[in-house]
Nucleic acid binder design. Structure first.
Length: 282
DNA sequence: CACCAGGCAAGCC
DNA sequence: GGCTTGCATGGT
C-alpha cells in the first residue's frame, strides 16, 4: 500500500487490502458512521476524520496534518502487509472462502480504553444496540469536536466515567453493564489497570490482568487484546465463532490458535463470513 | 408471549 | 475444573 500525505489530505493507493466499508462494518468497531456524501466519519483518541473512496484510491481528510502520524497511520495499521498475511492464511482450505468473502478487512488498532468499554458493552447484546449504547455514552459524556460542518463526540475518558454513578449512566441504557464500566474506569484511574503495563506483558498475563475486572471474562478480554492492544494472535470466541467451529471445523472445541500469529485476523474473516452466509447484513 | 444478542458472575457440584 | 441460572434491554 502506498500512502501520500499532502497536508490534511492523505491518499492511499493500492487498496486491495483496505475496504473501509468492510473494516468498519465487520463488527470490530462501533463508532464509524456513513456520511451523507457516501464516505465515513470517524473519531479515535478525540481526533476526527472523513474517509471516502476516490476511484481505486482512499482519501482521508484530516483536521490537521499531524493527525495522520499521531493517530490514523497506527489505527489503520497501514505499514502492515496484509497481502502476505492473506496469502499465508489462505493456505488453510477452510479459511480461503472466508478470506475471499472478506477481502479488504483489516484489524483496526483501536484505542485501548474505548475497546475495553465497547466489548464490556458488547456482552449478551446485538451489534446495532452496542452501537447505540456507545453513541449515547459519547454524546452524553464525551467532548464535542467540530470538523468540516460535522459534529463528532470523543469517547469519554476513564476520569469522566469513574466519577459517574449508575444512575448517571442510566441514560445510555446499558443495563447491568453500567456498573462494569464505572468499575473499569476506577481501575484505570487508580492504576490497577495500566495500558502501558499491559503492553509490556505477554498475552497470557495481560489476559489474566484484564479478567480481574468485573464483567470481563475470556471473550471480552480477548477482544481487548486483539482490537485494543494489537495482539493479532488472539482469537476471540463468541456465539458466532462457536458456530464456525461446528459448521466449518466439525468440532465445538476447535482451537483458533492453529492459525498462528495472525489468528485474530483469521477470526475476523470467519466472523464476518459466518454472519454473512446467515443473512446478517453489515 | 418466547427467544436472541460478539458473556459474565455466582452458586453449586 | 464444568454446569446452571440470573442478569437489563430492545428487537423480532
Amino acid at each position: 500500500m502506498n500512502v501520500i500525505v499532502n497536508g490534511t489530505e492523505v491518499i492511499i493507493e493500492n487498496t486491495e487490502d483496505f475496504s473501509p466499508e468492510l473494516a468498519f462494518e465487520c463488527g470490530q468497531a462501533f463508532r464509524w458512521k456513513k456520511a451523507s456524501s457516501g464516505g465515513y466519519l470517524g473519531i479515535a483518541k478525540g481526533v476526527p476524520v472523513k474517509i471516502h473512496n476516490r476511484g481505486e484510491k482512499i482519501v482521508l481528510n484530516l483536521a490537521s496534518q499531524e493527525d495522520y502520524d499521531n493517530v490514523w497511520k497506527e489505527y489503520f495499521d497501514l505499514a502492515c502487509n496484509y497481502e502476505n498475511i492473506r496469502k499465508t492464511l489462505s493456505k488453510s482450505e477452510k479459511l480461503a472462502p472466508a478470506i475471499e468473502y472478506g477481502k479488504g478487512i483489516r484489524i483496526l488498532k483501536q484505542d485501548f480504553w474505548e475497546a475495553l468499554c465497547s466489548f464490556i458493552i458488547s456482552q449478551c447484546n446485538n451489534i446495532p444496540r452496542i452501537k447505540g449504547i456507545i453513541e449515547k455514552l459519547c454524546e452524553n459524556f464525551g467532548d464535542v469536536v467540530e470538523f468540516e460542518e460535522e459534529t463528532f463526540f470523543s469517547f469519554p475518558s476513564p476520569n469522566i466515567i469513574a466519577k459517574l454513578t449508575e444512575e448517571d449512566l442510566s441514560i445510555i441504557r446499558a443495563g447491568y453493564r453500567a456498573k462494569y464500566l464505572i468499575n473499569a474506569a476506577k481501575a484505570v484511574v487508580n492504576g490497577e489497570i495500566d495500558e502501558n503495563c499491559l503492553r509490556q506483558m505477554d498475552t497470557e498475563k495481560a489476559r489474566k490482568a484484564l479478567m480481574q475486572l468485573q464483567g470481563v471474562g475470556r471473550k471480552v478480554a480477548d477482544c481487548v487484546l486483539l482490537y485494543g492492544l494489537g495482539r493479532m494472535e488472539v482469537y476471540p470466541v463468541d456465539v458466532w465463532m462457536k458456530r464456525v467451529a461446528q459448521q466449518f471445523f466439525d468440532d465445538s472445541g476447535f482451537d483458533g490458535s492453529v492459525f498462528g500469529e495472525y489468528a485474530g485476523l483469521a477470526q475476523q474473516y470467519l466472523f464476518h463470513y459466518i454472519r454473512g452466509i446467515n443473512g446478517k447484513t453489515l
